[in-house]
Amino acid sequence: MTDPLLRIEHLDIAYGRGPTTTHAVRDVSLDLTRGHTLGLVGESGSGKTTLAKAIVGGLRPRSGSITIDGTDVTSARGRDRTALRRRVQLIPQDPYSSLDPRRTIGQALAEAIDPRRASVRRHRATITEWLERVRMPADAVDRYPHEFSGGQRQRIAIARGLLIQPSLVVADEITSALDVSVQAEILALLDELRHELRLTLVFISHNLAVVRQVSDEVAVLYHGELVEHGRAAHVYDSPTADYTRALLDADPASPGFSLS
C-alpha cells in the first residue's frame, strides 16, 4: 500500500484558555490517499473550516500532527513552512473577497506563480492556458475582478489554486455563494480537473449532495469530532453514525443533484 499524501493524527485545536476553552477540533485522525478526494461534511460550527485552516498551515493545533507528503505541517518553520504552503493551496469560499479589486486577473495569477516577482508578461502563456482550462476568455488577463460574475470569479480562483500544481488542494465551501445552476457548472469543472490532473483534494461543504458529486471518501464532523469516515458510497448508503443519518434525512438532495 502507498503512504497517504495527507495524514492527520489525533488533532486537537482549541480557542481560549481555562473554563472558556472551546474545542473546535477534537482528536481527529484520518488519511487521504494521493489522487483521491475527501469530502468533509458537517453543519456550521462543526470544525470544518478550522480543520481546513490547520491543513494549509494557518492554525497551529494544541496537539496532534498533520503530515503532507511526509512533512509535518505542524512543526515546519521558516523556509520549510513557506515551501509547504505553496504545496498546499486553498480555494476560498467567497469569490468576491478572494481577489484584490485593484489588481488585474493576470496580476493575481502571476503573483500566485511567483509572489516576489509577479510578472504578467513573463507568465502570460501559463496564465492564459489556465484561464482557458477553467473556461475563461484569454482577455480576462487584463481585466479586473468587478468585471466578472461570482461563478466566473470562482473559476479564476480555481485556476489560481491549481496553476502551481500543488500536492494538495483544499476547497472550502466554494459553491455556497453561488446559485444552483452555477454550482452545477463549477462542480462539473472541478470534477473534470480532479480526474485530468489526478488532484488530491479536500472538498468542504455542508451540502451532502454536492459532496457526493465530487468525493471518493467522506468524513463527517460533529462538534469538532470525527463521527464517520469511509468510502462515499458506503457512507451515503449505509451510514453508521446517528448524526450522519440525520444529515441525510434533513438534506436528501440539492436541486439539480441526486443521492441515488
Rank of each mutant, 00 (worst) to 15 (best):
E147F: 04
S46A: 14
A112G: 13
R135S: 03
R34S: 09
E192M: 01
R133W: 06
S260Q: 09
M136G: 02
S258I: 00
A118E: 09
G150Q: 07
A233H: 11
Q107E: 12
I55R: 09
S215R: 03
P4V: 15
S238D: 07
R121V: 10
T82P: 03
D179V: 04
L168E: 01
I13Y: 04
V134S: 03
L162C: 05
L99Q: 14
S65Q: 09
H234Q: 04
R77S: 12
A157Q: 10
I174G: 06
Q89G: 05
E185C: 02
D3G: 13
L40E: 03
R87T: 14
V141N: 04
L99I: 15
S215P: 09
S215I: 02
N207A: 05
G58S: 14
S44A: 10
S258T: 07
G230S: 10
R160V: 08
R34L: 04
V227F: 11
D100T: 13
L11P: 03
A188G: 06
D172L: 00
L131I: 04
A219V: 12
T175M: 01
R133M: 04
Y144R: 08
G161F: 08
I158G: 12
R85V: 03
D114W: 05
S44N: 05
Q152G: 01
A232P: 05
E225N: 01
A52P: 01
A253K: 00
E192Y: 03
R153S: 10
A209K: 02
T82R: 15
D172G: 03
L197Y: 09
D142Y: 00
K53C: 14
